[in-house]
Design a protein around this nucleic acid. Structure first.
Length: 152
DNA sequence: GCCAACGTTGGC
DNA sequence: GCCAACGTTGGC
């Protein structure tokens, strides 16, 4: 079982929305590195830190898990979608996404500065300078610390 | 295959 | 809204 951090702007899709819907396809990722993590490495049951970016405050808002392995992202075929990709065909899809299921919301967001202030988290990918990957691996020890910081 | 120009992400 | 860092595109 692996551990991940997945970013979402709460104005677009928040952990509250995931709680309401219970599951969601993680559509709209248009970065190959992030896609490859979803396509090749994620398994059902993997644990996810749900991260709010461009938020007040930005940080980890709660926990989720992978509920279905990667399938073609249907927004790439939808001309009306902002995620439409003219180069993708049904026979040869370019973008894939996993299904994510709600687990638990933290009582309070564990903010970026909370993470930065924890010595044991210094080498987390999300804290590295210029780290923009919206889907990234997390080490178990880091996952456990963040979970504890979130009160779970 | 190089690399300049451009676009995007995301913290602040 | 600014801008640093990074990814992608396209001319050559």
């Amino acid at each position: 079982m692996k551990y991940w951090l997945m970013k979402s702007e709460p104005d677009v899709f928040s952990i509250d929305q995931l709680k309401k819907d219970n599951t969601t396809w993680w559509e709209g990722v248009r970065n190959y590195q992030a896609r490859n993590f979803m396509m090749k490495d994620m398994q059902v049951g993997d644990a996810v830190l749900f991260y709010h970016s461009n938020a007040e405050p930005s940080g980890v808002a709660g926990l989720a898990k992978i509920s279905k392995i990667a399938a073609p992202d249907k927004t790439q075929f939808d001309k009306k979608s902002e995620y439409f990709d003219a180069k993708a065909t049904k026979e040869k899809p370019i973008w894939y996404c996993v299904e994510v299921e709600y687990v638990e919301k933290f009582k309070e967001v564990v903010s970026l500065s909370d993470l930065r202030n924890n010595e044991k988290l210094q080498d987390m990918v999300v804290l590295q300078k210029g780290s923009r990957l919206s889907v990234q691996p997390v080490e178990k020890k880091h996952f456990d610390i963040v979970k504890k910081m979130g009160g779970l």
